[in-house]
Amino acid sequence: MWARKVEIGIALWLAASPFVFGYARDDVGRWVNDFGCAVLIAGAALLSHASRFRRAHLVSLAVAAWLVGLGWNLAWSTENPSPIAENWVGVGLVLLIFAIVPSEALQPPMGWRRTSERRISERKTASVPSRNSPSTLRG
C-alpha cells in the first residue's frame, strides 16, 4: 500500500499547486482541474485499501494521462516554458509510475497466493503420520 500513500501525497501537492504557482482568482478552470484531479487521485488511493476495490488506483492512470495531455497542450501553445504546464506534466508522469504499482505490491497476486497456501498445507498434511501408519502401530 506504499504506492497509495505516495499517491495521496501527489494529490496534496496538486491541491496546493494553485497556491504555489499563484493561479489567478478568476482562472476557475485551472482551480477546478487541480482540485478535481486531487480529489480523484486521493479518492481512488483510499478506495484501493478495501480489498473489493483494490484496483481502484488504476483510475489515477487516466488522471495522469489527462494531466500530461493538459500540460503538453499548454506547453506547446506558449513560447517560453510554463511552470504550470511543467507541473502538470511532471505530476502526471510521477503519478503514472506509482499508479501502475499494485495495491498489495509486496505480496504475490491473490490467485498465486492461494496456490502457494494450498501447496504448503498439502506438504504439512503429507508430513504428519496418520494414526494407522506402520510407524504409529509399531510404537
Binding site: W2, G71, L74, A75, W76, P81, E86, I97, P102, A105
Partner: peptide
C-alpha cells in the same frame, strides 16, 4: 524541453524514479 514540455534532466530523474519504484514493487518471486 520545448518538445517534451519538461526539462531533460527532470525527465531522466523520472526514469530513475521509475527504476527504483518498479524495482521495489513485487514479491521475491
Amino acid at each position: 524541453r520545448s518538445w517534451v514540455g519538461f526539462p531533460d534532466a527532470a525527465l531522466g530523474a523520472l526514469a530513475y524514479l521509475g527504476d527504483a519504484v518498479f524495482g521495489l514493487a513485487g514479491s521475491t518471486r
